[in-house]
Amino acid sequence: MGAESYYRNEAVKVLYSHHHGWLMGWLRKKLGCSQRAADMAQDTFLRVLTSHADLNAVKEPRAYLTTIAGRLIIDDARRKKVEHLYLETWSALHGNDVAPSSQSLVEVVELLTAVARLLEGLPEKPRRAFLMSRLEGRSHGEIAKALGVSVSMIKKYVARALLHCLDLLDEDQR
């Protein structure tokens, strides 16, 4: 183990021993279920352990922990929604006879949840333009026709979506 990860482990240990009980209480009140609260608390500390944030710079440890835990709760809810909608769309497109393999389903739902988080807050047109371009590989000309805007606008939409994603990713690093 490198020195850096050693100190990180120590810092997380301190956070854990001082605030784990409190975080459990906070989560229990929010979720109304102690089993889920315990799981969510574990996930929160796992996230802290693997993040790149400078723990020494954390002034308000409880606010820091509840921010991460809150995000995890939202992600969890979104993941369920994504999974439900994905399966619905899948069977609409492919019929009920062929199901996606459970392995790839887990991966896709994970990816889609992450992408949904990245694209949240982006207005509808830039988001749709970006999805059509990146996921469906459609040309700017086609997208412009579908959205009823000029071709040069599509380039701006796609670029705007990329910057938006980058901002959110940078935020995560902090």
């Binding site: 994905y86 899948w90 492919h94 991966e107 949240e120 059509m132 590989g137």
Partner: peptide
Amino acid sequence: GLGSDGGAATSTLNAVL
């Protein structure tokens, strides 16, 4: 890795968002 599923990924994202 997204989008090779006949549009299911795009529809899902548009529906969620």
